[in-house]
């Protein structure tokens, strides 16, 4: 296991939100972090992306403490798409995507041929090629989300950490994104994503991790995780589990 947490407690201002979590991320899968608001799923993701420092325990990357690894080296291994981003003024779409190459470029950030090829390809994959010369500040929320995703992909890392990537996207772009994640996964990337939509997670992800009040309640394949009791225990909802008529994955319908 490349990425794991050991007795990890982490939070803000001395208040632990994630409490003593032991977790091994299964390699080569699409993993969804699920749970109600405030359960600590984003906090756990941020700790695994070394944005937050542990209060207790540690995060391990290939046998080493995450925080002991040189930051530029680690940036070639793990990429994070944060939940909210500031709107940068005076930055063009193609410049923002190019910033994703920073872990590979020299001190002045000059791009070589290979950098340019990767930038072009991720812009094509996320469908933003025609926005290249527009200012990021002039885009819609959904377009901006795709531009940030493209920047994260330009980082070209084996591990991708996404914090609610479908926020602000309309339904068709959400579906496109989930298909893109599947494609990237087939290319060998491990993807860990916080999601709100349980059915979306069950349909597109291989492994679900469900959290409540800072602890992991259960994890496993969508079939083994999604049950009536879980919906009741974690989300306080009376729901039935049915089978998606097309993908044959479990699907929860609220009563």
């Amino acid at each position: 296991m490349s990425l794991s947490t050991h007795n990890l407690s982490v939070g803000y201002h001395d208040k632990a939100i994630v409490k003593q979590v032991n977790l091994s991320i299964p390699e080569g899968k699409i993993i969804a972090l699920l749970g109600p608001n405030g359960c600590g799923k984003s906090t756990l993701l941020k700790a695994m992306a070394r944005i937050l420092s542990p209060m207790e325990g540690h995060v391990q990357w290939q046998g080493k403490n995450l925080h002991s690894i040189a930051s530029k080296k680690l940036a070639q291994q793990l990429a994070l798409l944060p939940q909210t981003q500031p709107i940068p003024e005076g930055i063009k779409v193609k410049d923002l995507v190019a910033y994703g190459r920073s872990p590979y470029t020299g001190f002045w950030g000059r791009l070589n041929r290979q950098d340019q090829l990767i930038i072009d390809s991720v812009m094509h994959e996320t469908g933003i090629t025609e926005l290249a010369d527009q200012l990021v500040s002039e885009l819609s929320g959904g377009q901006r989300q795709r531009v940030w995703l493209a920047m994260t992909l330009a980082q070209d890392t084996p591990y991708l950490l996404l914090d609610e990537p479908t926020t602000y996207m309309d339904l068709s772009h959400q579906v496109e994104l989930m298909h893109l994640l599947r494609k990237l996964n087939k290319q060998g990337k491990t993807i860990i994503t916080v999601l709100h939509d349980i059915n979306q997670a069950a349909r597109y992800c291989d492994h679900l991790i469900v959290m409540k009040q800072g602890s992991i309640i259960t994890q496993g394949s969508p079939d083994s995780v999604l049950t009536q009791t879980l919906m009741k225990d974690v989300f306080s909802l009376n729901a039935q589990i049915h089978r998606d008529p097309i993908a044959k994955t479990p699907m929860c319908v609220v009563e």
């Binding site: 994070l80 500031p86 950030g109």
Partner: peptide, 23 residues
């Protein structure tokens, strides 16, 4: 001037900057 590149990245927010390898 030496800081131009990391300054670009920190302008994107601390989370993105750290993820891109900036202290």
């Amino acid at each position: 001037l030496w800081l131009a590149k990391p300054l670009n990245l920190i302008y994107l927010g601390d989370d993105s900057a750290i993820s891109l390898g900036v202290k």
